[in-house]
């Protein structure tokens, strides 16, 4: 009988070193800021393991890493990236620039090409020239710099929405006008929140809480509108000039 376990011979059930822990992450780059966000639910199958397990991590004052996929691999990967960044700091007396972190992440991921970290990474922050940057990776290290990217369980729900609202895909500007190349923070933040409320509505693995990291370049104009927001907290670590904020919001828990 197909699909039934044979009783006459022993079953070979080998150990599966991977699982999926749900959740979604997202990052959008502005002209002089970057927003990196993730929900805080961690699940396995239909069980919610915890309503608060962060997926977004401040690496330096110019780089924030969001990690999504297999949580154990994700946490270990962040731990190892941080270790390498600390070594760099001890060797060079400065924080590693974000494009170097991006290349570092590629080599670290590709080093495990034949037993991959089962994680999708999105690195967001400020480039050395002061522009907002988003780098997205696949589990084995392929990466590119982009203006916006969603990953994780609800990637398919969020990414086309972002294509439309960030890249203005399938839209034409009114005659004699042009779409802005970069959106202001006051436009980006509501889009991030809307993306996650939409994903929460239609995807069971997304919800509980939302953590939005905002990285500002030196003298970023986005600072003014940011500090008056509800639930905003500054997590800047140095006096280099870049500033990091985190905004926490509730998402539906069902």
């Amino acid at each position: 009988m197909p699909g039934m376990v044979s009783m006459t011979q022993p079953i070979q059930q080998s150990f599966n070193p991977y699982t999926e822990n749900g959740g979604t992450i997202l990052a959008i780059a502005g002209a002089d800021f970057t927003v990196i966000a993730g929900d805080t639910r961690q699940s396995e199958g239909y069980s919610i393991q915890t309503r608060y397990a962060p997926k977004v991590f401040r690496l330096t004052d110019k780089a924030v890493l969001a990690v999504n996929g297999f949580a154990a691999d994700g946490n270990m990967f962040v731990k190892k990236v941080r270790q390498r960044l600390e070594w760099y700091r001890h060797a060079h007396a400065k924080d590693m620039p974000i494009r170097a972190i991006a290349r570092l992440i590629q080599t670290m991921l590709y080093a495990r090409r034949f037993f991959p970290y089962y994680v999708y990474n999105i690195l967001g922050g400020i480039e050395e020239d002061g522009t907002g940057a988003v780098y997205s990776f696949d589990p084995v290290g392929s990466y590119e710099r982009e203006a916006c990217r969603a990953a994780g369980a609800a990637q398919s729900l969020v990414q086309p929405f972002l294509d439309n609202q960030i890249y203005f895909k399938n839209q034409t500007p009114a005659a004699g006008t042009a779409f802005p190349k970069h959106l202001p923070l006051s436009t980006v933040l509501p889009l991030v929140i809307d993306s996650f409320t939409s994903a929460t509505e239609r995807h069971i693995e997304v919800g509980d809480g939302l953590e939005i990291y905002v990285v500002l370049a030196r003298n970023s104009t986005a600072l003014a509108g940011l500090q008056s927001l509800r639930g905003v907290q500054e997590v800047t670590g140095t006096n280099d000039g870049e500033r990091v904020f985190v905004i926490r919001r509730d998402l539906k828990k069902d």
Binding site: P17, Y18, T19, N21, Q42, E44, S47, Q49, T50, R51, Y52, A53, F70, A71, A72, N75, M76
Partner: peptide
């Protein structure tokens, strides 16, 4: 906090392993 054979970890104010994760949580 919790940890299992895969190295998965998490923390919450109520935790349970195995069947407890479905029935007791």
């Amino acid at each position: 906090a919790y940890v299992d054979l895969l190295g998965t970890t998490y923390s919450a104010s109520t935790l349970a392993t195995g069947f407890g994760g479905h029935l007791a949580i």
